[in-house]
Amino acid sequence: MDAPLFLLFAFIAVASAISLVVQTHPISSALSLVGVMVSLAVLYLLLGAEFIAAAQIIVYAGAVMVLFVFVIMLLNAGTEHKSSKSPMVKWFGIPLLVVFIGVISFIVQGMLPKSALVVFGTFTQGGPLEVGRALFTTYLLPFEVTSILILIAIIGAIVLARKEI
């Protein structure tokens, strides 16, 4: 069942990502991003990262995206004007992107051993217990630092949102 699941959600992710890029209305883009995130969460589960998958759904697809949608509605952002400025970028950029992805895949293929197959259930260290233990032992200091980071972000957001700026 692993391969069909991967292929299905990988397809959804890529499709949503393309949709994000080509949609002209910000709300559509935001919803496409939610699609990417949810399908990525499933792939995380396949890779044995249970806690991160849950966090992905709750934090990203939930909280962060709600924030985005909120801002879009607040600013009443409308449809983007068609970019007619530089068609050359499109004709030049997209092939370049494809070539780039090709090179990357070439490199990645060369780097990893052929036998490295992803089999669901072989890695069980991604539960909340293990992640929590690592967070509060080895990575305690970075973890505490992130709390300061978030505090700064909160203060920053408040300062930015004040009227007189």
Binding site: L96, F100, V103, I104, I107, G110, M111
Partner: peptide, 22 residues
Amino acid sequence: AAWVVLGSIAVILAMGLTGSIR
């Protein structure tokens, strides 16, 4: 940003093609 991307693509290509990434 386009310059940044072009630069990083160049670096990655150079590293990948010369094999120093391995």
